[in-house]
Write a protein that binds this DNA or RNA. Sequence first.
RNA 1: CGGUGAGUGGCGCAGCUUGGUAGCGCACCUGGUUUGGGUCCAGGGGGUCGUAGGUUCGAAUCCUAUCUCACCGACCA
Length: 569
Amino acid sequence: MRTSQYLLATQKETPAEAEVASHQLMLRAGMVRKLASGLYNWLPSGLRVVNKVAAIVRDEMNKAGAIEISMPVVQPADLWVESGRWDDYGPELLRIKDRHQRDFVLGPTHEEVITDLVKTEVNSYKQLPLNLYQIQTKFRDEVRPRFGIMRSREFIMKDAYSFHIDEQSLDETYQRMHQAYCNIFERIGLQYRPVIADSGSIGGAVSHEFHVLADSGEDDIAYSDSSDYAANVELAEALAVGEKTAPSQRIKLVDTPNAKTIDAVSKLLECDITKTVKTLIVNASEESEHDFVALVLRGDHSLNNIKAEKLELVASPLQMADEAAVKAKLSCDFGSLGPVELGFPVIVDRSAERVADFVCGANQDDKHFVGANWESDVKDYSVADLRNVVEGDPSPDGKGTLAITKGIEVGHIFQLGDKYSTAMNCGVLNETGKHEVLQMGCYGIGVTRIVAAAIEQNNDKYGIIWPTSIAPFSVVIIPMNMHKSHRVMETAEKLYKELSEAGVEVLFDDRKERPGVMFNDMELIGIPNSIVIGERNLDNQQVEVKDRKSGEKILLNIEEVVSHIQNLG
RNA sequence: CGGUGAGUGGCGCAGCUUGGUAGCGCACCUGGUUUGGGUCCAGGGGGUCGUAGGUUCGAAUCCUAUCUCACCGACCA
């Protein structure tokens, strides 16, 4: 491709709306242009990258035994009513009507359509397992589209759905998809982690997210420094920390005027914050005989809502108790609560339970207890994992300690079980001739999001540094003053022809621009290699080949260039 | 949905307080100049000042309504 016949569309200035690196660079490098909030045009360079990513995903999916199909973006509402998600999905689902006033949706995902398809096309267990996928545009009417391509409303996703006669078969395919995803991210060349995830509202039991590690990520991931363990912070199990010491003090009531927070109390009483506990009152579940449940954490730890609401005694969704209602019962404010003689169930975090001689609220305004102990002073309580993990906690798998990093979710795989197949009555005849509902798995990869994530992870002050696997071009020819020098032009044309014929994706910057302009544009776009041709080196029949990532330059004889570039992979 | 801020040539912005010929930089076009890291000079084209209404002799500027966008929050396969 010649730049003179291409739409390069680079720009010097960064549009004010772009916050994150990938968004800024994609705009400046001429990859995308915004059409409206969360909607983007893909320009030639951007589309080339999208297609590269899609090709790798497609190849690995095929290798893993999945079969490509294509389903419509517009879907009839009936199917969503049938699955129950017409009501459950909320405003993120864009609903439209056709000319006959029939309801349709723009597909944010395709569980309904695929389940309906398989229901009619697959009738026997002999046709299973089956894993179907598509690479296709999705639409989600995000509350707040942001970060450019990272969270747009329209995006390209690879979504696969597998169907099984039993859970064992589902698990086999799930493991195979897990491996295929690892292959994809490794082949693209990104730093990533598979993490144990919450299956969320899509339902199902087992689930992993695949995260590209980058500081601008929206999710927090806890991972072990010495094993493969990684989990979303929301889910990471928090083991007990701190030594369990024997009680050495008797409980004592002290005045703590105006000390309503853990910080204030520990400061006033001059005690370490890890020797305090805090008490949070939440609404109890309906099955419970009480109105409230007290959740007790060590002073420096924070409550994990997801863990809390999974407890039997706790109402789901989790709801903090109304302060007035608590005051009516205990006649004190939130700032003076403690687990001693509360009159409703007390659940203590594992780490809080290890603290002896602790400081806690006395359930009287402006009073706290010091030297309190579980066995002697609280007596009736249970212990559970309630808190968020923090950096330095022991890893739940027993190997190493946890660190926390930011990640960009680029893939998510689920074992759905029979949620959709039951709702939509999707089954086959089994070996005994009886109708059996299918087990399902679903596996998504954000193709366009990977493009943005790759930039987040690979850029410098000059621009994008594409991994070779997904670069829009493998090499660019940058001639110095070609329009003045016949020798330069001849060499450039020759190399362009030879590289093109060798099947190398080569860009030829034949614009009548100054060298600095070309260097800057090509570094911004992030092409992995450039061939600089100038009078200077032609005297020795040589050209310069420069690596975008390392900045290293080497001189090569002209006839060596093509094989050298090919060997770079 | 709540909070904050912004809408002026393709992009980045000034002008608004105190109403009176719509400006600057980048980009674009023409000519020259320069040529291994975003040259320099001269000339040129392009804007219903988000939209609608109002006040006024006169509105980018003041008032009202409305739309759009961004950031923070809530929410989220």
